[in-house]
Amino acid sequence: MSGLIFLVLSFVFLILGFLGEGGHAASLISWTSFVIVFGGTIGSLGTSFTMKQIKNIGRVLSVAFTGKSTDLVELIFYLDHVLGKVRKEGFLSLEGELQEDESMNPFMKKGLQSAVDGVNPDDIRNMLEIELEMSSKRHKVGAAMFDSAGGTAPTMGIVGTVLGLVHVLGGLAKADMNALGGSISAAFLATLYGLSSANLIFLPIATRLKNLAKQEQLEKEIIIEAISLIQENVSPTILRDTLKGFLDKKDQTKLESRYFGDLNKEESNKEETKIA
């Protein structure tokens, strides 16, 4: 949602700046320029991508503006909880939790359910890695569509301006000089539409989709590695230290402080129990 807010703000600031220079909002409206720029861009997308891919653009936009990044530190702590439960009670103890927790990441649920069902660790890893690869390819196609639109829109803007100038210059001999300035101004609106849509809409959305895809890929890589380690029945320390390598420095510090904070809390609880 924050992306949508900043998208709106970017256009608001652009228009405010134009009004501050003494311009009129009505002079920014030209349906012919709109048709040339966005119609040409849509035509280019239809030529570059299949109809099946284009039909998914609504879902891609939804992901861009509603997608949320996962707290990787919390994810690692949950996987640590899963390891502890499995070490104490076995994989079958996860059955109820997997069925009841509807908010659980579907990718993680699939991997853990396979482990509960006794699937070979290598087979689970291969299955999840294939799903990760296919998911990454879908994300790349979504971002590529907006990258393509971002490259096409400015060009279509120039085409629209050239068409407008051809019309203006073609009637220059009979033109009303008072209206000539307005006609030339309208011709340049196509360039404005092309540049602004590319740099405020299409390219930022493409970049946002790429960043979300990288975050999702990292999350899934952590899950894949964690499930393999849980099946190997490693110690909690090895699990945390291994998964910590996927984090940046800030999250590593957060993980360590969270871990030692919980550890001190457990020791404090034990001391209180002894005193009682």
Rank of each mutant, 00 (worst) to 15 (best):
I130E: 10
V234Y: 06
I184G: 13
E219C: 13
G194I: 09
E219S: 15
G164N: 07
L132H: 15
E131S: 08
I224E: 03
L163W: 11
I222C: 09
I230V: 11
P236N: 06
A143M: 01
I238C: 06
S228W: 07
E216V: 09
A153C: 07
T207F: 00
Q217V: 12
F188T: 15
E216K: 12
Y193S: 14
Q217A: 15
A179K: 14
S185Q: 08
T191Y: 04
S235H: 04
E131K: 10
A173W: 08
L195H: 08
M177A: 11
S183T: 13
A187C: 11
D147E: 12
E221A: 15
A153N: 02
K210M: 02
M156R: 02
I222M: 12
R138Q: 10
L200H: 07
V162K: 10
A179V: 15
N211V: 08
L218T: 11
I205M: 03
D176S: 15
K214V: 11
E131L: 03
M145C: 06
A190C: 11
L195N: 15
L239T: 14
K210A: 03
L192C: 13
K210C: 01
G157P: 01
M145V: 08
A206P: 00
E216M: 13
L195V: 15
G150H: 04
G181V: 14
L212Y: 01
G194S: 09
A149E: 03
I227D: 03
S228V: 12
L165E: 01
E216P: 05
L200E: 07
R208W: 00
P154E: 02
Q217M: 13
A144D: 05
I227L: 05
R208A: 02
E221G: 14
G170R: 06
G160H: 02
L195Q: 14
F188S: 12
G157A: 07
L165Q: 06
K137Q: 08
G182R: 01
G171V: 10
A186K: 03
A206T: 00
I223A: 05
N178E: 15
S235L: 13
E232H: 06
V168L: 01
L172S: 08
A206Q: 00
S148V: 14
E129R: 12
S183P: 03
I238D: 04
N211G: 06
L172W: 06
V234D: 03
I224G: 07
K220A: 10
